[in-house]
Design a protein around this nucleic acid. Structure first.
Lengths: 326, 326
DNA sequence: GCCATCTCAGAGAGCGCTCTCACAGAAGGC
DNA sequence: GCCTTCTGTGAGAGCGCTCTCTGAGATGGC
């Protein structure tokens, strides 16, 4: 009851294994008549190539590792979008997605071993933490690696990202343009490049406009956004706008503002970042900077499969979507 | 610059390939002294077993396919939780997760071929559509398959699920207990077992209480929930409660109710299903039935690795979490 | 002291495939 | 008509590993 081998196909079609292999792999140098016979045999036997045997000799696996550091939020709205987008792109290229979550130091070692062990032809790295040892470890591998998001400065990896600085600038400028005078920010963890860049964009604009900045830290979750908002109201009771580095934190901020009896946008304008779907359903709907996740994923796959290891990073624009919260 | 083979390790340690293999695979029947020599050689050479060669002979791949039908919402809050939970459980068992999204008929064929081709040792199937050909196709394979969620009636697959009927009953009963007299429902697509079961639970309770049911259809998205709510308000302007088959649809319903000037819970009580994180941040916070995704994922992995192919389904309780929307 | 039993290492087959090389036969040039 | 070139096929090596089988040497029973 074992699966048919190429040998069996060849025997049935009355050809050699080599010819059968040629047909299965789409070589054109085979007579049409023979090709048809082989294909018929394949069909009749239900032959499917054994991938282990194939990759043993070709040294390719036709699969790409998607390595994701464990983010703080269990329900990460963009995780789903990212995974789908990457998966769809890789599927077009005939690659499989092997998902690896880097949730613990033990997992780091396992992943490094797995990747070094030639299980995958390349790696897409979604690393959020600054202290993450994976980027460096994977960079040591001879395999192509592309990072989703700018990696921390200590390692040099090709990457694709959305324009976090530009998006944050647009958000801050928008709030000033709306006449807000005291614009606070809820920043992400300082060891994450995305968080840092978004904060930097906010600071750029405020200092250029000669305004003091007012910042509280969060960890990208709703809950941390709510807590940061409480802190901001203590530190700057006169604030009339908040820019949050993620929509989730903005949503936490909205929650706090509501509890504290502040009207949005009447008393306080709120702008988030990422433009997740949920932003359209908050009360009021949330102004946000759109992160083009799918487009970034596409760029990553293109770069990865194009093997352009040391090319320029691709940075895609992040546009402001104005809704009622500002 | 090729990776070291077991042969090289054996040569360096001064033993045969067979002995080196024994050590690498943790066989106990090797002298401690020899074992140490081999391990030292492994370390010095940075040896990592070639998985293709290994699985060619063992006929195992140590990876499990996670096959997910494309859901309607790009940002599926539970997708992230599910993937993480499954991944964590499989990791403990030393298995890799190969993610396959069934987004098109072409993808179905590809996945079936991939699975039949022996790339994975088993499959976890997350199929939402009733018309999905995958359950049947995968059931034909000789591989172990476990479904997340009850599959459609036409195929018989082992599965684990949360108690959708029970959860929906609890939600409907809760609304009646709160004194609501006209309880409507926003149902999921009728070809999805989860949607059907949740509607059935609602109907059970209403007919037992001798109340008329009032149902509108959605497709599990926020937007469809908003539209369904508009429909319900047209069909039953006197309604004073709504049970939505998912939190996302409940959130859409809240949106519509707000636009229509109905107070929640004053005029209309709302209960959702799944208890996603977002439910804690709506205005008012949403009463919901908790879907124990992580626990179901755990049960699935246990069953899959336990090889119990035709055992009873595991159905885990779904508890009502009461918040301010009801 | 001899044979049976046990422990542990090595030899070698073989998993299913790809790919190089050899070679048969057809086609073309002089 | 012979040699060269080209096309299409087969033979066979070998990818790196596991695992069975063999056998050497130690141990024990009588």
């Amino acid at each position: 009851m074992r699966r048919p081998t190429l040998e069996a196909v060849a025997a049935r079609a009355g050809v050699s294994r080599a010819t059968a292999s040629r047909v299965v792999n789409g070589s054109e140098a085979v007579h049409a008549q023979i090709r048809d016979a082989v294909l018929r045999a394949v069909d009749e036997l239900g032959y499917v190539p054994n991938s282990a045997a194939r990759s043993l000799v070709t040294r390719r696996t036709d699969s790409i590792g998607l390595v994701v550091s464990e983010p703080p939020a269990a329900e990460d709205p963009l995780f789903s979008v990212l995974v789908r987008a990457v998966s769809r792109e890789l599927e077009h290229a005939g690659k499989q997605v092997v998902l690896m979550l880097a949730s613990s130091p033990a997992a780091y070692a396992r992943i490094e071993r797995y990747v070094a062990g030639g299980h995958v032809d390349g790696v897409i790295l979604v690393s959020t933490h600054g202290a993450d040892p994976l980027p460096a470890a994977l960079a040591r591998t001879q395999l192509p690696v592309v990072s989703y998001g700018r990696p921390v400065a200590t390692v040099s990896l090709p990457y694709c990202d959305s324009d976090n600085v530009g998006g944050a600038r647009a958000a801050a400028r928008h709030l000033l343009d709306r006449g807000r005078r005291r614009v606070a920010a809820i920043a992400g963890p300082p060891d994450m490049p995305a968080g840092r860049d978004r904060l930097a964009g906010y600071r750029d604009v405020l200092s250029a406009a000669d305004r003091r900045s007012l910042v509280a830290m969060g960890d990208f979750t709703r809950e941390s956004g709510a807590a940061a908002m409480r802190q901001l109201l203590l530190d700057g009771p006169d604030l009339d706008a908040v820019f949050a580095a993620t929509d989730l934190m903005a949503i936490g901020a909205l929650h706090t503002l509501r509890r504290m009896g502040r009207r949005v946008p009447g008393d306080v304008a709120v702008v988030g970042f990422d433009d997740i779907e949920e932003a359209r359903y908050t009360d009021p709907p949330l102004t946000s900077v759109r992160t083009p996740v799918a487009a970034v994923a596409k760029a990553i796959v293109e770069r990865l499969l194009g093997q352009a290891r040391f090319a320029e990073p691709t940075v895609l624009p992040a546009d402001l979507i104005v809704r009622e919260s500002s």
